[in-house]
Design a binder for these strands. Sequence first.
RNA 1: GGGCCGCUAGCUCAGUCGGUAGAGCAGCAGACUUUUAAUCUGCGGGUCAAAGGUUCGAUUCCUUUGCGGCUCACCA
Length: 505
Amino acid sequence: MPRPIDTILENRLKKLDKLEAGGTQGFPNDFVPDSDTGLLHRRFDEVPPEVLEAETARFGVAGRIMTLRSMGKACFFHFKDRHGSLQVYVRKDVIGDEQFERFGLFEVGDIVGVVGRVMKTRTGELTLLAEAIRLVTKALRPLPEKFHGLQDLETRFRQRYVDLIMNDWVRELFVTRSRIVSHIRSFLDGRGFLEVETPMMHAIAGGAAARPFVTHHNALDIDLYLRIAPELYLKRLLVGGFERVYEINRNFRNEGLSHKHNPEFTMLEFYWAYATFNDLMSLTEELLGGLFAALRGEPAIEIGGKRISMAPPYRKLPLAESLSVVGGLPPDKVADRDFLTALLRRQEVEVIPAWGIGKLQVEVYDKLVESRIEEPTFIIHHPVETSPLSRRNNENPEVVDRFELIIAGREIANAFSELNDPRDQRQRFEDQMRAREAGDDEAHQVDWDYVRALEYGMPPAAGQGIGIDRLVMLATGMENIKEVILFPLLKPEAAEPDTEEPAES
RNA sequence: GGGCCGCUAGCUCAGUCGGUAGAGCAGCAGACUUUUAAUCUGCGGGUCAAAGGUUCGAUUCCUUUGCGGCUCACCA
């Protein structure tokens, strides 16, 4: 028994067969458009019909047929190219019987090339009157419905190509994503930062607290980790003399999936010698203020129906203080070990006795503070206990010169003045090593070569990471990270016979 | 991984208080030379996600599985 979809595929194949039997190629590669929908709209949308009558120029365009209205000896269709869509008017008495008959075998989804002149319809819509039309690519599968388009989330993510064909807003979202990345690159390039690429396959997965993916190199017969952060390599470059470096690329973390987490995600990390985390806060304000102003015309975002100003300066709030100011704790209890432990237990957090006051504070912060912060806020001075790579604060050695930028309850950036004392670094790695031995498999792995690099002397520097996916979510108002990643990770589809060859007729 | 919700034609959706299903678009045949969710006439199209159970009978009720969404946990 043929499945219903097979009938549709066969019908389309039959049309292709007929076209090819008549000498028409189904997949030629020699049609070159000399114009596009954007260009024609810009040039002719405002031109009155009678002026178009006198226009002698001919334009060649190519794109995918999206809707088609046939009326016997004439036909209107809309097609899409990368700039937008345009209507085409095909008349039998203009293109001739033979060509019109061939055109009758074209259908929605096909990619066509049209050469013609511009005109306006009765309703004033700019239209290309076809003088020649040919098939460029035959589509064997039908497009989703023209009015509702493709809605099903799973299909949209699995078959993103169809999503992009049907949903203009999706296409625009990914253009925005690309613009954001371009903006960041030119912002940093303009300030003397050098873009570099560091390894994605690490023998030691360092630079963050996270579980890595493991892979295997056959010839060397060693296990390697997909990187969880580029941090330690970028700082080796500071040692090497590149005083301003950045990298925009993928990190991989072997954690659960959620609407905020994709196993591979894109991070910007940059490092700036002879600067401190205070300089980074100013730079971040400049970067984000400028970015959102460039994207939206004003430094503001819209999220969950709420408007959030992105105009600098942003609030600065020490983490310990945020527990009372935002979290509502009594100010005299924010460093009270028993109080914090009891509080966390009520929140069903499994408190490990080895945790110091700093770790307890961070846990409470994660539970009670972060999600409540809306306006851009730098949470500063994290405990040294949870920041093994950050420089201690000069006045209070229990905290580090670090900030996380929180916007709309989400962490957008994490930055700190870098620790460059190899003695302190060695000590903190040893602490992490003990934590690992105590069963914390997210404690940092020890990277002794990194300590060796520091022993050659790393200039004082500040470094920052910005999650690009989450920044794009913020900029586009999306609540699901899969909406801003072209091909998000999904479980494999069950073997679906839908992709089998249809039976030859 | 836990909890809740969803999965019906290529697409968007109805529906069946348990008696093997409908619409619109798309498709097929036909009419139509300014339409635009074109219109008009006729026609075809479904293992109702999968497996098992209860039942005279299951797409519908129950269980399990798969995939997805939301949410909690971990993280960025």
